[in-house]
């Protein structure tokens, strides 16, 4: 029997179907695809992006968006390492030799503070979220450049920085079939589990959906919308800083351009995973699927030895296809709404 509901369910979970199709496709395309090393690479390369997308998913569901996270990520990584390593070349640190654990706490608090400031400008200052987060994106990036004067901060082979790098660097254990699992991958998995709980099973998540779905209604029913928006930007800032901490361990040396243009991939991952740019729709699991799909495609195209000149074209097309599916989903929903309400009348 043809049923709109069944079709909608399918489309809502299409990301996992696409992921499987793409996966099988690549297995046939490259003998190297289904290897422990490659599976391990897919997961490792998805970790940092995944954390950023998780933060963005909260913001998008509340009907806002946050362009600034790529800069917050960069600044967090930069400051985190700078606080630990010696001054002068080649480390270019602050020579403060801060305890790395303290540096981690400071880094995450900085992310929270940036998010809170953005949230205040939007809710109290009554400014548009696009302008505020775009300005934050530029200001924070500018601060990084001014702060470093273009030179990278590096903690390579520095024992105390290794503690900081642990999150992004260390292999946790080996799983047969999945190869080396990095701490970063485990951490990202845990973050998605917690974020899923918050979004699906906590009042906070429920209220974000309400705000994104109908802000007026949420306000009229006594939800403190502005407070929630500030909190959601704070959460986004913390997750961006966490992603920065993670990325610091992966690239070791922090260039002042770390994370630049990352935000496009973040939005692509969220949207492909079914998180709506209009607010109110999407799930953490969908977002996770989107992230895994992007990483799988990146690895697969490289293993297929597609020319670098074509890779961007293909990636862009994939985003377009995802948007096409999203547009069909909205149309289908409207169709089925009309169908059901006419039946009821």
């Amino acid at each position: 029997m043809f049923s709109y509901n069944r079709l909608l369910f399918l489309i809502d979970h299409l990301i996992w179907g696409i992921l499987i199709v793409v996966f099988v496709f690549f297995i046939f395309q490259s003998e190297h695809f289904l290897t422990e090393r490659n599976i391990s690479n897919i997961l490792a390369a998805a970790a940092v992006l995944g954390v950023l997308v998780a933060g963005q998913t909260f913001v998008l569901i509340s009907g806002n968006f946050d362009l600034s996270t790529e800069s917050t990520l960069g600044l967090a990584a930069l400051v985190g390492v700078w606080l630990i390593v010696p001054a002068g070349t080649p480390t270019n640190g602050g020579g403060i030799f801060m305890n790395p654990y303290l540096s981690i706490i400071l880094t995450l608090s900085m992310g929270a503070l940036i998010g809170y400031a953005i949230g205040c400008l939007i809710t109290v200052g009554n400014m548009h979220n696009f302008i505020v987060t775009l300005a934050a994106l530029l200001i924070i990036r500018g601060l990084m450049l001014a702060f470093t004067e273009g030179a990278p901060v590096s903690g390579f082979n520095n024992p105390s920085a290794d503690v900081f790098y642990w999150l992004g660097h260390e292999k946790a254990f080996k799983v047969p079939g999945f190869g080396n699992i990095f701490v970063a991958v485990l951490a990202t998995g845990l973050i998605y589990f917690i974020c899923h709980l918050i979004l699906k099973h906590h009042k906070f998540g429920r209220e974000l959906y309400a705000i994104g779905g109908n802000r007026d209604a949420a306000e009229a029913l006594g939800i403190n919308v502005n407070r929630r928006i500030r909190q959601v930007y704070m959460l986004s800032g913390i997750l961006a800083a966490l992603a920065g901490w993670m990325l610091a361990g992966r690239v070791v040396s922090i260039q002042p351009n770390l994370g630049e243009t990352f935000i496009f991939t973040v939005f692509a991952g969220a949207v492909i995973g079914g998180v709506s740019l209009q607010g109110g729709r999407g799930t953490m699991l969908g977002a996770l699927g989107g992230v895994l799909l992007l990483s799988t495609i990146d690895r697969g195209l490289n293993l297929m030895q597609v020319s670098v000149f074509w890779i961007k074209v293909i990636q862009g097309s994939i985003i377009l296809v995802a948007m096409l599916i999203d547009a069909q989903r909205v149309r289908l929903q409207e169709l089925s709404n009309i169908a059901t309400s006419e039946k009821k009348l």
Binding site: R206, Y209, G212, G213, N214, D216, A217, A218, G280
Partner: peptide, 8 residues
């Protein structure tokens, strides 16, 4: 306008 959230 009932103040309903369509997405919920």
């Amino acid at each position: 306008d009932l103040k309903l959230c369509n997405n919920l």
